[in-house]
Design a binder for these strands. Structure first.
Lengths: 193, 193
DNA sequence: TTATCCATGTAAGCGGTTACATGATTAT
DNA sequence: ATAATCATGTAACCGCTTACATGGATAA
């Protein structure tokens, strides 16, 4: 999966591992994440599989940048992956719900504390989503597309913007629901324990 | 995490690895899951850590059942884990949203197919949740609590039932929202691509 | 001057998946 | 007769986290 994500971003423009880490953290971080260590090692594996190639940008006394670009084989792999519709529900994990499941054996106050903390964190994430301005993020170079000027970049990514907004809207709807759910949970715990 | 889940269930009653696999799949499966191979190996590790102990039930020509029970150290570990409120948002992963994010480079029909397939799967899960009858599941021995009769079992698990229902209600609300979101996505794709 | 950003890696180890392997019992 | 359920394991491998390690450039 991470391989496909890296191919997905490299399909826009060549980037370093550092760039990829940043761009993931600025976009799909709440649907997929990876530490830099994993990204660097995965890129090496992908190069061995000929999905990407890299050139080291020599730059004097600074640390060299290793810039990766997607290969034709990489593009094919990416498109093959996207061509086959996902035919099962992605597995979800949610520590908080698991803990809630076992909460009859906990202190009432601990449960309430946890619910309030989670509520606040969800609220923060929601605010972050709501303040996100995709067009601005793209044109200010969040994607950092090499040698293009902001306007040209925005133009090239115009078709993507619609899908990115769909994903963002889902994030907003999800966090909103989660907060409502937590509120109902708090009310129930206060009344029934 | 899996260790805590196993402790959580063993805290109700002693069980085999097979039982634990089944009870997880009947309860929190949509918030956490594990293959039987992982459960068996994890139980062995937990026994080495003295969190659980096991006895092998000899039963003639049938395959022996290895019944695990929680130890005092296990109970302490479980309670310590539950006592500390979760202070960060659990990481989420969602292949479908990641794929949607990259969907500008896909065929319109592939995207729509995928959305419709995902919608159907979500609908099935929702129906499953809506048909779930917690009291019936407990009293008919889904938990399989050893030597207790259904009525006594239900009585003992009465305090848990409230929390289980909260988690179930969240599941219902989540799937409902997801289906609505997919519908909006389908509409958008049909109109704009 | 202190912290953050840029930039890249290695290594140990745990978590988790997939596949292999076996075999009796019970339900359709 | 066939499939599903009960029941337990091993092994290879990949994914992922955590920690270690380094060092220049830039901003507060």
């Amino acid at each position: 999966m991470l391989k496909m994500i890296l191919l997905g971003f490299l399909n826009y423009t060549p980037m370093t591992g550092y760039d990829l880490k940043r761009v993931i953290d600025l976009s799909i971080t709440n649907f997929w994440h990876a530490h830099h260590s994993q990204i660097y090692t995965t890129l090496r594996k992908m190069e061995a599989e000929a999905l990407v190639e890299s050139e080291t940008e020599e730059q004097g006394d600074k640390l060299n940048r290793r810039v990766y670009h997607i290969t034709e084989a990489g593009r094919e792999t990416l498109h093959a992956w996207l061509a086959e519709p996902l035919d099962h529900l992605p597995a979800t994990k949610n520590d908080h719900m698991v803990r809630l499941f076992f909460s009859a054996m906990r202190d009432r106050d601990t449960v309430l504390d946890e619910l309030r903390i989670q509520r606040q964190l969800r609220q923060q994430r929601l605010a972050h989503y709501q303040n996100a301005d995709l067009e601005h993020m793209v044109s200010s170079g969040a994607g950092d597309a090499a040698d293009l000027d902001p306007a040209a970049l925005l133009d090239r990514l115009r078709p993507d913007l619609g899908y990115w907004k769909l994903v963002l809207d889902y994030g907003i709807a999800y966090e909103t629901l989660y907060i409502q759910t937590i509120d109902a949970m708090i009310t129930w715990v206060e009344a029934n324990t």
